[in-house]
């Protein structure tokens, strides 16, 4: 392994808000002006490279991963040495200006490849939890932090969640599920497809679109509108938007610390095709190791994961379940192509 390289593993923050005014909730956080959004991203240390919106939400591709803004929900995911948690104070302040208060928070991440390169407050999970505890308002009285281990030492899942009383009850009826996939040791030939062609004069937008087609990412969900970007000399990010649902992929293809992530949100009453989606994702990257985390109130989404991956030569090495406030059940599974 390289001594130091680009940290592919993302940190992911999901914030839920509520307000008294239904009109505000209708557009809500999507009203945040560009300067305020840039101020938040400055605190994290990243910028917007591409964006698109539909009736339901706005999706931004960032220089370091992605941002999704719904009327009362924000999901921000950043890789590298960004200081993601520093987005919390300015986000809470802008939401307050719109009459919205925080009612739920979820922070998740995998295991950093280069933990020593991480700046404060990401120097350790303990430090991150302390920062979260200090930044969140007191009404979020249900809180839990946990590291879910696996038999594959390089993969473990860090989860923090917090909720207020009302959000707890509402979330228990939620039919939304989230799948977060982290893949390492990508197939070398496939990873090369995420390098820009030498002498390519195309913009990052155009080169990104080319990669979406060449790699098969465009076929993962043919209904989705894809907003993609290719970085120079390598690396790729995309957001797929499909009604109220999104999917997102980020790739760091460098040999020695190659990494790709896939994430999607969907609804439990309509998850039949999730196996098909996961299969296509695996075929794009052919990782030697992957972890799949599913977050959902009901328990049936995660069962299709191993059923889908094992026929593709990925053996389930560990499986863990834990319950978190307002998140429901988090199931963390790891897979490798090796026998033992």
């Amino acid at each position: 392994m390289a001594l130091s390289g680009f940290e592919g593993f993302e940190k992911r923050l999901e914030l839920h808000f509520s307000g008294d005014d239904p009109v505000t909730e209708g557009i809500g956080l999507r009203q945040i002006d560009m300067e305020s959004l840039e101020e938040v991203l400055d605190a994290v240390q990243c910028t917007v490279v591409s964006a698109v919106g539909n009736r339901y939400f706005d999706a931004y591709v960032l220089s370091e991963s992605s941002l999704f803004v719904y009327p009362t929900k924000i999901i921000i995911k950043t890789c590298g040495t960004t200081q993601l948690l520093k987005s919390i104070p300015p986000l809470l302040s802008h939401a307050r200006d719109m009459g919205l208060g925080l009612c739920g928070c979820r922070y998740t991440r995998g295991n950093f490849i280069f933990p020593k390169a991480q700046p404060y407050p990401h120097t350790s999970f303990r430090e991150e939890v302390m920062y979260l505890e200090q930044s969140l308002p007191n009404n979020l009285c249900y809180r839990k932090a946990c590291v879910m281990p696996s038999k594959v030492s390089s993969h473990s899942w860090h989860v923090y969640s917090a909720s207020d009383e009302r959000h707890m009850v509402l979330e228990n009826m939620s039919n939304v599920f989230t799948i977060e996939v982290c893949m390492t040791e990508l197939d070398r030939v496939l990873a090369r497809k995420f390098y820009r062609r030498p002498g390519d004069a195309n913009s990052g937008d155009v080169a990104g679109k080319e990669m979406t087609e060449l790699t098969g990412i465009g076929n993962i969900n043919s209904h989705a509108l894809v907003c993609d970007f290719a970085f120079d000399p390598c690396g790729y990010s995309m957001n797929g938007i499909d009604g109220p649902q999104y999917s997102t992929i980020h790739v760091t293809p460098e040999d020695g610390f190659s990494y790709a992530s896939f994430e999607c949100v969907g609804f439990t009453d309509d998850h039949d095709d999730i196996g098909e989606v996961l299969k296509k994702v695996v075929q794009v990257f052919r990782p030697a190791m992957m972890s799949v985390s599913t977050t959902c109130v009901s328990q049936d989404v995660w069962t299709c994961v191993a059923k889908t991956l094992e026929p593709l030569g990925l053996n389930c090495r560990s499986s863990m379940i834990d319950e978190f406030p307002a998140a429901g059940n988090v199931v963390f599974q790891t897979f490798t192509t090796r026998r033992k």
Binding site: V48, S50, A51, V52, N202, S203, G204, D205, V206, L225, C227
Partner: peptide, 10 residues
Amino acid sequence: VGARKEELQQ
């Protein structure tokens, strides 16, 4: 489709 400023200029 999308805020793709470089592609728009191109």
